[in-house]
Amino acid sequence: MPVNCSSCEERRAVLRRPKTGHSLCKDCFFHAFEEEIHHTIVSAKLFNPGEKVGIGASGGKDSTVLAHVLKVLNERYAYGLDLILVSVDEGISGYRDDSLETVKRNQQQYELPLKIVSYQELYGWTMDQIVKQVGLKNNCTFCGVFRRQALDRGAMMLGVNKICTGHNADDIAETVLMNFLRGDIARLRRCTSITTGSEGAIPRCKPLKYAYEKEIVLYAYFKKLDYFSTECIYSPNAYRGHARAFLKDLEAIRPSSIMDIIHSGENLSVKEDVRMPVQGTCTRCGYISSQSLCKACVLLEGLNRGLPKLGIGKHHKLHHKLLSQEPLSEQEERKLKAVDF
């Protein structure tokens, strides 16, 4: 039996909103989805008129929908933003080709400028070369760290004021759970903030923070947006995988769980006497880092010296040696060379 849209009460509903359970027609859903993001942007004061805003574009559903909605809202509400797509080419043969094609198509469809930054150009190593050296088991450390910086470095080249990423409500709830389970208080405190980034770094924000992943897919589906599935091809870290599975089960029991967890995360507060790592900058590349060398520089150093394990474990004690280009002792070398697959 056809159901009427609960918003306009005129047209036939075509979907049930995963977030609220309401049945909506296509137009009302588009409207609701876009307006909610607009509300997020305005209430959190994410942008100022005249800013140049980089959209981290992977070709995946989140960033594709983000680019589309930002373009729409920028026009509808005259934000006055200069939007630009920023894409990272990790150099994984076969894997990125399709997604980069998608990004290029998006660029044409939305008439947004696009900048592709490659690992080769930024680090001197492609992801394929890295995998060859470190093995499959550890490469996620590399792709996570390098990807974060790649976007920043690319954005810096373009003179961008802010970077937007496609993190959605599910991602954030999942991160709250994961940091909680891992006991990572510093990240737990930061992970629900909609804008991150300290002095010197380009601020990053998440306009889709309150958008459900399923609604993002629905939006892309009904808008016939072209996207490429870019789940990381390597297995995610164990805790994230568990947290994700748990979140899916929760959502099945109570759909509001995703927002409920974000609410929890936003209202947690940490005791004052808990030590927080001091944020500084990397002495080599200037990127924000709590150590004298940022994670990417340590990883790179490891790769360049043929000691891939350097960046994987905790080897802060060796940083001064790396900084002063001192050679490592034989024992230290042996410890860092072996990679277990």
């Binding site: 609960s6 918003s7 306009c8 009460e9 909103r17 977030k19 609220t20 309401h22 909506l24 137009d27 009302c28 409207h31 609701a32 307006e35 909610e36 509300h39 997020t40 209430s43 959190a44 004061k45 509808r76 509400y77 005259a78 909609i194 309150y210 509001s256 927002m259 409920d260 974000i262 609410h263 936003e266 209202n267």
Partner: peptide, 27 residues
């Protein structure tokens, strides 16, 4: 809590999904 919160965002979602007290796309 302030406007920029999960609590508020949820209320907005429920609100938008069932009433038509506003004009669409009214810039």
């Amino acid at each position: 809590v302030g406007e920029a919160s999960a609590f508020h965002a949820t209320q907005i979602s429920h609100y938008i999904s069932q009433k038509i007290l506003m004009k669409f796309n009214d810039p």
